[in-house]
Each structure stands twice: as C-alpha cells, then as structure tokens.
Amino acid sequence: MSLASAALTVAAAAPHGFLSPTGVEITFLLVSVVTLAAALVTVTTRQLVHAALWLVATLGGLAVEYLLLTAEFIAWMQVLIYVGSVVVLLLFGLMLTKAPIGRSPDADSGNRWAALTVAVAAAAALVWVVVDAFRTTWIDLAGAPSGTTKITGASLFQYWVLPFEALSVLLLAALVGAIVLSRKAKGEATTTASTPAVPGTRSEKEGVR
C-alpha cells in the first residue's frame, strides 16, 4: 500500500515508526477497540436499558484515552459528569417514559439502511481525509503532562474567564428551563410533577463544578 510505504519512508527520517509502537500506543489501540465496540453496541442493541449501560463503557473508555493523552483533569471531569450524572439522567429518562424492559423489536426505525449508508460513507470520507492529512504527525508525550489540574486551571482562569462566567449563566438558564418544561400546569399538578425536575437540576450542579 502506498500509505504504508509513505509511512516507512517517513519513519526512516523520523525517530518514530508504525512497526515499533510504544506501550502507550498499544494501550491506546486496545482501549479504543473496546470503546468503539461499546459504542457500536450502544447504537445497535434492542434492549434500551442495556444501551445506557454500554454508553457507560464507551464514556469510561474515553476517560482512559484522555488519561493516556496526559489530560488528567478532563478525564476526571468525564468520569464525574458523564458517567456520574448524564448516564443516570438518561436512565431516569428511560424509566420515566416507561421504556420496555427486555427486547423491543421496534428500537430501530424504518430508515435503518439509509442511516447505515450515510454513516459508512461519512466514516470512509472522514477517515480517509484524516489519515491523509496527519499521517506524518506525532504527539510528543514525553516530558511534563500538559493537562494537569494546575495547568488547566491556570489557563482557564487566566484566558477563559469570560466564557466561563457566561457558561454559568447558560447553565442557570438551562436549569430554569428544565424546571419550567417539566412542571405541570397548576390545575393538574400531581405528585409526578416534581420528579422530572430532580434529575434536570442535578446535572446542572454537576456541570458547574
């Protein structure tokens, strides 16, 4: 293949190579296989609750990938917010909409094959472009990690203070909006009126953190 030969010629010039992957690369590949498989099961399984649980595996795998890329703070935020609260919210949503336990034959809609065609075409195009553009690019992971809490906090509060504060206003608006949307009108208020608001506010609190 022309790609492999091009990589080999580059490998001769650079100290890196496809044929001598480092331990980090092997770990990254293994974890990415697990992550991708869990993502595929998430979008294809017919048991709705299992889809949410496979999503946990996908998001946890991505947290490990962040750790391998030396972005510690993002990794722990991923575990806290996504695995901790978003998945719980999704499970709440599944239960409050009375999703059937067990197999539901109509989990996929009729345009499944069209969706598969679009997704495969998009994947082929994206992978081709990305590989062609970055096949000679290497991340230098040696040295001090670039995503510790100290470095991320410093850059966040030195250069990104205004977006950060604007984001807190957005989260407040989302909180109020979720409460308003999930509240019943006054006449027909019952005990179920308050339950949808609880997961909504929880996620916002986690998001501010």
Binding site: Y82, L89, L90, L170, A174, G177, A178, G200, S203, E206
Partner: peptide, 17 residues
Amino acid sequence: IAIAAAEIGIGLAIVLA
C-alpha cells in the same frame, strides 16, 4: 462537557413533556 450536561437536561425535559 458543561453544555452537553445542560443539553441533556433540557432534552430530557422536552422528551418527558
């Protein structure tokens, strides 16, 4: 990540409504 958390809250509220 923060916007995704807000989005999932609002989205689930809409789905429940």
